[in-house]
Simulated scan of single mutants.
Amino acid sequence: MIKIGNLELENKVFLSPMAGVTDLPFRLICKEQNCGMLYTEMINAKALCYDDENTKKMLKIEDAEHPVAVQIFGSDPEFMGRAAQIMNEYPNEVLDINMGCPAPKVVKNGDGSALMKNPKLAEEVLKAVVKNSDKPVTLKIRKGWDDNSINAVEIAKIAEACGISALAIHGRTREQYYSGKADWDIIGEIKKNISIPVIGNGDVFTVEDARNILDKTNCDAIMIGRGAQGNPWIFKRINHYMQTGEILPEPTLEEKINTSIKHLDLAVKEHGEYVAVREMRKHIGWYLKGLKNSARVRDEINKIESHEEVVSKLREYMEDCLTLK
């Protein structure tokens, strides 16, 4: 069990917030596979304060999803505090602060991982959010800005002192983006230095990775990002292993295709056919990755604009694969 503020969670395998990925349809798919806590895409605190319609759409949370964490980003303490007040009216259980995003359009404004370069301002932001939130506040950080400014332990200590309820750490610097290897040692170091729960993140793609990160870092929970892309079964498989010591088989071809169709159906319902069919191209590519002749099918699907045609193409591909067996 992990306790985040007043929230008790039995399931310690979480979905990482990912821009353009962790929308409502994908979250519902991950929840079906026993994900312990879902995170929304990151929400711009200023846009939220200005009552932006697109931002409000991203905050739609369904009953089936709980528990949910909403992640906000920004570097202005006043706006971040106001955003926290607004979020008190929403049904999410946890409010998360982003200090890990490496995207240029985010860091150029001093937001995301750029905040780690300014511990004083980071502290002001943390205090403003904690003061104004009725919910447990968590923080997601990276190892540091670059190899010359690794300050995750310092930021973690500041966060704990500000009243943050749990901390997620991705074991890479901002400059690394997603290249190289995640440094799990920094997760273990943070775990030794603070008493709030630590959530380990970075390079968890398999059940074995999950076991290894827990063994190596002693972290309290695991957060999975890219490892869940096209592979929502990772949550169920890790949880099953943690409970029984048994590794369940990989999903079958039929499971992959049927889940991609279900995901597409949910996306069409949520976003409309035009947007959903285009948005789902990357997801379908991830579901099909590594399957026989999948590159050809992926290329064909990337040119299709109709929901019905995509479903038909996926079913036809599944039939062909099963026949070839």
Rank of each mutant, 00 (worst) to 15 (best):
I97N: 04
M37D: 00
K105C: 00
D147N: 15
I196M: 12
V198Q: 06
K282G: 03
R27Y: 07
P67N: 03
A161G: 12
A19L: 03
V94A: 00
I301E: 11
V68M: 06
E62F: 04
R226M: 00
S16E: 09
H271D: 10
N148V: 02
A168G: 13
R27V: 07
L121R: 15
L266N: 11
M58S: 13
A83Y: 05
E160G: 08
V198Y: 03
A210G: 15
L291F: 05
H263S: 06
D265Y: 00
R27T: 08
M18R: 00
G200A: 14
E308S: 13
A128Q: 06
V311L: 01
S113I: 02
L291G: 12
P17A: 11
S133L: 05
T22S: 14
F205A: 11
E53N: 09
M242Q: 13
M58I: 01
N258W: 01
G245H: 12
G227I: 12
N92E: 14
Q71E: 04
K269P: 00
I247G: 04
N92L: 02
C101S: 10
K236F: 06
L115G: 07
Q176M: 15
G202H: 10
G230V: 05
N6Y: 10
Q71P: 04
Q243C: 02
V277Y: 06
D299Q: 14
E93V: 03
V94L: 08
K46S: 05
L48S: 04
V311M: 10
R296L: 14
K31A: 01
I238R: 07
L253D: 05
I224V: 15
H170S: 07
L115H: 08
K191S: 06
I61L: 03
A267Q: 07
S133M: 07
E78S: 13
M318V: 05
T244N: 11
G180I: 09
D265F: 00
I164R: 13
E175K: 15
Y287S: 05
K256V: 00
K31C: 03
A156P: 06
N44G: 03
I186R: 09
E316P: 00
Y178E: 01
I186E: 09
P25R: 10
C162K: 14
L314W: 07
L126M: 15
D146A: 10
R172N: 05
A228S: 15
A64Q: 13
V107M: 02
L253F: 07
L314S: 08
E208M: 06
F14V: 03
I186M: 08
E123H: 02
E8N: 12
K256W: 02
K192I: 01
E160L: 04
